[in-house]
Design a binder for these strands. Sequence first.
RNA 1: AGGCGCGUAGCUCAGUUGGUUAGAGCGCUACCUUGACAUGGUAGAGGUCGUUGGUUCGAUUCCAAUCGCGCCUACCA
Length: 975
Amino acid sequence: MEKTYDPKNLEQRWYQTWEERGYFTPSDEADGSSSYCIMIPPPNVTGSLHMGHAFQDTIMDALIRFHRMRGDKTLWQAGSDHAGIATQMVVERLVNAEGKTRHDYGREKFIDKIWDWKEKSGNTITRQLRRMGSSLDWEHERFTMDDGLSDAVREVFVRLYEEGLIYRGKRLVNWDPVLHTAVSDLEVLSEEENGSMWHMRYPLSNGQGHMVVATTRPETMLGDCAVAVNPSDERYKHMIGELLELPLTGRKIPIIADEEHVDPKFGTGCVKITPAHDFNDYHVWQRHRDEVSVSEQRHGGLINIFTVDAVIRDNEPEEGELIPAKYIGMDRYDARKQIVADLEQLGLLEKIDDHKLMVPRGDRSGSVIEPFLTDQWYVKAGPLAKPAIEAVESGKIKFVPDNWKNTYFEWMRNIEDWCISRQIWWGHRIPAWYDSEGNVYVGRSEKEVREKHNLDADYALSQDEDVLDTWFSSALWPFSTLGWPQDTERLKAFYPTSVLVTGFDIIFFWVARMIMMGIKFMDDVPFHEVYIHGLVRDSEGQKMSKSKGNVLDPIDLIDGIDLEPLVTKRTTGLMQPKDAPKIEKQTRKEFPTGIPALGTDALRFTFAALASTGRDIVLSTSRIEGYRNFCNKLWNAARYVLMNTEDQDCGQDNSKIELSVADRWIISRLQQTETKVTEAIEGYRFDHAAQAIYEFTWNEYCDWYLELSKPVLMSKESSTEQKRGTRRTLVRVLETLLRLTHPIMPFITEEIWQRVAPLADATGDDAHGSASVAGGTTAGMQEVEQSRKPEPRTPEATTIMTQPYPVADAAKIDAEAIQEMEWVMQFILGVRRIKGEMNIAPGKQIPVLLGNTSQTDVGYFQNNRHYLDFLARTESVEILAPGDDGPESATALVGEMKLLIPLSGLIDKDAELERLNKEMSRLKQDMERAEKKLSNKGFTDKAPEAVVQKERDKMEEAALALKQLEQQAARISDL
RNA sequence: AGGCGCGUAGCUCAGUUGGUUAGAGCGCUACCUUGACAUGGUAGAGGUCGUUGGUUCGAUUCCAAUCGCGCCUACCA
């Protein structure tokens, strides 16, 4: 093995091997009790991997690998969605670069172009997913626009339509005037922006003064149909029903009373009502449209003033001058200026205040969204939501962490009908046809429609031009990918899926809709658990976004990147090019030397370690570096193990062995670690799993066990059985640790495992307990680990991926060994602390005396002499007779035993006194604390006996230790 | 406005039925290139657990109030 761990050369090699050998496809031979399935949240075909994906994929892959190793029939479903608007925009931009528009190509040719683009460029993210080590079933990769999923979409649409759960209607929608399509509420992002509040005077038609209305969008006044006041508002009560002159239009509009919408305490208490351009006003209009004063307005009061571009429209022939000619053809903002100017001139502008307002913008185009009156298709959400709410209430679906169900309920209980039509070309075309009379026919195909309605082949039908919202097909993902509407084996095996892993930002978008559709069409929930993870932020806690220039490409963390390319990457393609200098400066400051190559395993381990219950994941490269170092530690531990075991007898043939205290101790600790890690993964606490692995590997296996193995292996006095036992433990603990770690760090564990596994010889049933053992307890005699029969190992086709996941065996936990090792470690630490604090070189061998020894101390000492000499660098150890205080010495306590290092020549008297004083004051504090508790009658009366006893023990121990140290201090100061 | 969440070491975070000296990583200090690893070893410094009350024998943990921060939803024309 190389001296330093280098992820580069091993990660991609292993991934390729795994994929070639088909390890990612669910195994028919899986012997676990159940199947396990996760659907990947389909990434967007235009997308590339960001940190959120990398984090999410790490969690899913860890779960998938964990269950695969446990023997479950395991599927991680791969695929991507067609991202209607985003994809169309990408290809449209390419077409624009040719100097053409999509209309020059026409619908069909343009769609062909998108498919071409998808073939060539649509796989960026799947390549990146492979770099993350994701063990997705690529053989069954799906795409929301492929034939099968398109069938599913049509089927669902038709069935919902036939049940009356899909309908077509003219409604106000969020209209993107740049993309010319409706978008859903969820695709609109509102942010506070600076604007103005215009206060306009609307004269009373009877000449008795005016009313003042305020608005943030004065241009919409052209479409006003009324002014509303609160009926209880004394100021205006008497004016209800009177008419106002709507300035600039020559129209008269009524004053109406609306208690719900109008807050008399806000502004002037008068609200202009523009029902075709404001959602609230639309609702007011719905309440009042039957009142004569409103209904006799043009178009019943519902007056649209814009074109699809948000330009003031022209009048229809029969409308006369409904829209004043002066403004026709003006963009909405030009019209605003003009109207304000004209009002000003007429003396009808009372004032303009600065005003902050929430401006809705399309998340794709960035343009200001316009409420706009159009014909759209809707899904009636209420009936679908009801069982979906119950599924979560009843616990059929559990959110992890549990609180997220509140968010879900909040949304579901106030759900509104879902606008599913989009005025774009790329997507599932709505399966509805119209005849020249305007009749609508819905069916799976034109053929089906004609058959069903007995329409001749020459009866003219034209299909609806619109396509469905991408999320409509995503909502079907958990069953459509498995073959629905066909009744497939995969569907039977994997639906309902086990868990959905996703970010909280799409609980509404996606999670809720999958639940509704799953229950509706599969008659069962799509998944049993929803694990909601946090959002990855940069080292300053900022949300990562391209526009902020603080995005990190996970691949750059894996492979490393120099500063200059990183700066270039972050500053190109910005929505706001003016931010480039700021971003460059910030990048140079944060990464003065670029980013070092850290490897996938280190990145994955970092994600796991950060995956606690919080909402934010703050990622810093120093943290990843720490875990890269951990990989190196593991690597070098393996190197040490191999150096001492390869070509040597490690007890593979189950020949006689003797297990030392250290062997039995590390085996015990391994079992405890296995329990912790397994429980952590089962409870989605990957941070706890990672921490348990980290601590065991570094603080126990490396820091102690490997060191303790050295004297055994190096000494001529060790027996063959002892050496064999140690080698076997070295190798088997490592082998097990690799399996334990594999779900989080797949690559390094596979690489090392390939070399370690043959030495550990983890095969064969008769390995259990058949080794003949000299010495040691029963618990220690058994195998390090084996739970499930592993697959037969042949040289070419074996992998850690399909080995059994470690299962702890409580019988292997040797409490005595743990206690004895605790003593050994305390001894060694005591000596080291004295050396450290007395400025004695750690390597210097020194004499040690033991005072106040018990029978156990003497036994432990004799058993472990070789460890103590080696790790504490003792020159000699002498046990003092009872009552003998020995010469003046520096002191450490191991339980009640005194560990003495004679002062002569070595130790500074004052320094030792200082040390003792420090230790004594610590003990005194402990005592005081305990004493205070014990002298409190409330405590001794009411606290549980065990707690009180614990306090008494503590008190006693501290008192004893204090006494010993006081004596010691007295002797030294007498010198 | 409503809902959710968070304030613990310089930084990032653990701390699940209230009871050890409140832990870890990174960073910091001193020493050590010893034979798996300087991407390392050894020893160490560092916290009135946001604030204030309450419940309790006992509160980082439970309750209330308060301050600060973040997110989501709905927004006032």
